[in-house]
Nucleic acid binder design. Sequence first.
DNA 1: CCATGCAGTCAACAACTGTTCTCCGGAATT
DNA 2: AATTCCGGAGAACAGTTGTTGACTGCATGG
Lengths: 215, 215
Amino acid sequence: MSHISGVRQARKEKTRQALLDAALELLEGQSLSSLGLREVTRAVGIAPTAFYRHFRSVEDLGVALVEEALGSLHPMIRTTVSTTGDGEERIARAVGLIAGHVDAHPAHVRFIARERHGGVRAVREAIRGQLELFTAEVGEALASDAVSAGWGEEDLLMLAQLYVDQMLMTASLLLEAAAEGGPGERERVAGLAARQLRLISVGRAHWLDLPGGGG
Amino acid sequence: MSHISGVRQARKEKTRQALLDAALELLEGQSLSSLGLREVTRAVGIAPTAFYRHFRSVEDLGVALVEEALGSLHPMIRTTVSTTGDGEERIARAVGLIAGHVDAHPAHVRFIARERHGGVRAVREAIRGQLELFTAEVGEALASDAVSAGWGEEDLLMLAQLYVDQMLMTASLLLEAAAEGGPGERERVAGLAARQLRLISVGRAHWLDLPGGGG
DNA sequence: CCATGCAGTCAACAACTGTTCTCCGGAATT
DNA sequence: AATTCCGGAGAACAGTTGTTGACTGCATGG
């Protein structure tokens, strides 16, 4: 029970990570519900039975992958949304950050996009939980913004969810663009995403102009 | 080569449809990339080898399912977007139509949401093709609307894509709400979707207020 | 230094997969 | 009435799958 490293725990963590990495790579060409336990262990180079020392099932590994893909993203989101500056600047920075993340972790992005509505319930729910967390965080950041003065809680969360979904959509499109699009496709998609964020921004700025606005 | 019905072709079409139906039902709990050929034929009650009389592979069947799920949706979309009336009325009607479609064809909606980013390339591309068709149609309908006067082609398609993605997102959320949400969850999701459409509408109305708007 | 814990191996299990080739019966054509 | 066509059945193929139990070697804690 010692908190000191230990050669033992280090080795275990290493092959656990190898399993996660191998699974993520194999998942580029299929869905989680068709990923086999033996397939993963074969890719890592260990016996099939060793899998059970780390995960109870492939489904379990999938949930761990969700944590790995989205868990470390919260600080980045927080700082992105609460960053100051001109509206246009913020949009450009947000799109740039998304594009950078897609470039740095394409397999993670693909995994989330694929399994968000995928065939494994536990994984779907894990993703949904993380996204709800994102939505709450974005909503909180929006609340402390001058533009949101007079907004109701419900409207804030509505907007936050719109932003989160838009973020995911953009990430997925950028992934496709990088994978099979031409050289200019990346810029086209990034420009499109920026435009859509701009339109949402405009809607946000005039939201309270509505008769009965904020209701 | 006769165009007359024929008992023979009718029988064939019948079991072909049975295969599609059985596959769609089996896909409620898994993804296409894990759906087995034998699994489908077993559910229909025919020999595994008979599958090849109708589809070359499960992948092929998946593409046929895309056509079945989205092919007949174009007229509904066209009439929905080009319908007249107050903005709020149109939003309510659109959300209502989506909810009705989800109720009538839940398995189709689930299939599209799941396989849009799923593990089978040919199916992903078939879905993408249909959605691009939707986007073009919505864009065309938007062009002949008074609010869109002075809009550039690129901005119109940007807005159309926003609408199409929003439509899919709403359908998927309504499906979840119907499946595992409480009694009031349906109305909550419908209200949320209407609010998001409203915000997009506001953004659309003030789009050209921007300095350099429409550029 | 010795005993415990534990990651990983190995062999074996029954069940399942996609695909082939051969055959049958009944509709369609002539 | 005779022949062709063709959806479907059946058997067999080599591979694959998840899970079990008993095992080995080595880092750990006493």
